[in-house]
Design a protein around this nucleic acid. Structure first.
Lengths: 243, 243
DNA sequence: TAGTGGTCTAGACCACTAC
DNA sequence: TAGTGGTCTAGACCACTAT
């Protein structure tokens, strides 16, 4: 009952037309499709109806728009496959894929832990945590936002090591003498928040792969709670099982 | 440059207003928010501007709409966590979570394999495959669509066993004498196709967790290539590592 | 019948791009 | 300057819900 589609006649006709033209390669990768005005005269509908149709097709990942220029067919298989493994940091795991990559610390705070952080990191209430917002680039494109939550008691004086930030994993290994290991991860599909839209330079036409990760010290103690938001159009997880 | 937001002033103001009211519990779970007309007079903007704002907030998963009734605040943590493990079928893995579930065979074909299927299943061109479209329900709600591709040479006469379909995994175990095991899985976030929207009874306001899975025979031969599309608002993967 | 959300039309103005 | 996409207004009509 809730949210069911109904009577989309004209809009869907235009959506299918565009997708079909792309599939049969009449609208080719990287080239401009007809403008909103051209399509509205072609289909004898209002420009806004065309806009709604194009918006849907963009949302499906087929198109992107540049103001003043037009609407272009997106290269489809441009996504990066990222292997999920419990050990090693982002850089190490991407190095095997020969990609340029960089990390940028957007901002950090030291505050008392919130409810979900207390639960994930097994803290007592009122304990302090560092909260780091990190933006990750691959081939100069912002691809992911991470919020990393780290207990102060495990990482005392962390702020002293954040100058010239390049890799949290390496800071931990170098200054605290261990390598965190992934214990638990959840994966879901969602949409970008307004903040993440700005950081990732995307609109709501792109979906988000959201993960929550708990990393532990080799002795078993949870030491990092990480919430990542990754561009769904450029990124894909891969999992390999060794039975 | 591409797809950057700009000058959303009014729309964003309304978006933030609605989300804020939900967060501070002034708009409560399951209750109606003010109608489009009420909001448009409140903010002194056109109804269509309100509609665009509400559409964004719906897309973020906060709201759902019922025609003729209004717009309601969605219960947020209604999602099912599904553990990723290499062994066992959907039913087995969900039974531990004490959920009702069912599978329905939507349709099936026997055709020559396509390029991606040939690659995934290591077939030679022109080999036949069964292609099964399966809809999965949890608690009576359609939650996922699976397309399962199975080589005819591995599953001869599969069509004879599809009457009274309830679980592909169990059909294979019963009639072909082995249990497939997951070897490789990719996970991405995307949007529903028009067909999947109908089957899952959703609109494009809900994101999709898409997985491609290669299952193998215990001897190592790939025997099933499965493309699943799962409702992003109700479903989440979990991964547990044993180091 | 009145109120709600859903679709479509019509037109204005803006910001950006190309020439 | 002309063309393009982005935002906003204004109003019509439809389908559905409640009374």
């Amino acid at each position: 009952m809730e949210d069911k589609p109904q009577g989309y006649a004209k809009q869907v006709e235009i959506e299918n037309y565009i997708i079909h033209k792309i599939k049969i390669n009449e609208f080719k990768e990287g080239t401009k499709i007809p403008s909103e005005n051209e399509l509205s005269t072609l289909f004898k509908v209002n420009r806004h109806t065309v806009r709604k149709a194009i918006e849907r097709v963009r949302q499906l990942g087929w198109l992107y728009a540049i103001q003043g220029k037009g609407c272009f067919v997106r290269k489809k298989p441009s996504s990066i496959s990222y292997p999920i493994v419990s050990k090693g940091c982002f850089s190490d795991n991407l190095n095997g894929l020969s990609k340029n990559h960089a990390s940028k610390l957007i901002n950090w705070t030291k505050q008392t832990a919130q409810r979900d952080e207390i639960k994930a990191l097994k803290l007592s209430p009122e304990e302090n945590v560092y909260r780091l917002d990190i933006l990750r680039y691959v081939d100069e494109v912002p691809i992911a936002v991470y919020t990393s939550v780290l207990p102060e008691k495990v990482f005392p004086g962390l702020e002293c090591h954040l100058g010239g930030f390049y890799s949290l994993f390496k800071i931990i290994r170098q200054h605290y003498g261990f390598s965190p290991v992934c214990k638990y991860q959840t994966i879901e599909a969602t949409f970008p928040s307004l903040e993440d839209m700005e950081l990732l330079e995307i609109t709501n036409h792109i979906s988000i792969l959201k993960s929550k990760i708990i990393n532990i010290h080799p002795d078993g103690m949870p030491v990092e709670y990480c919430i990542s938001r990754i561009r769904g159009d450029r990124y894909k997880y891969t999992l390999r099982f060794n039975n």
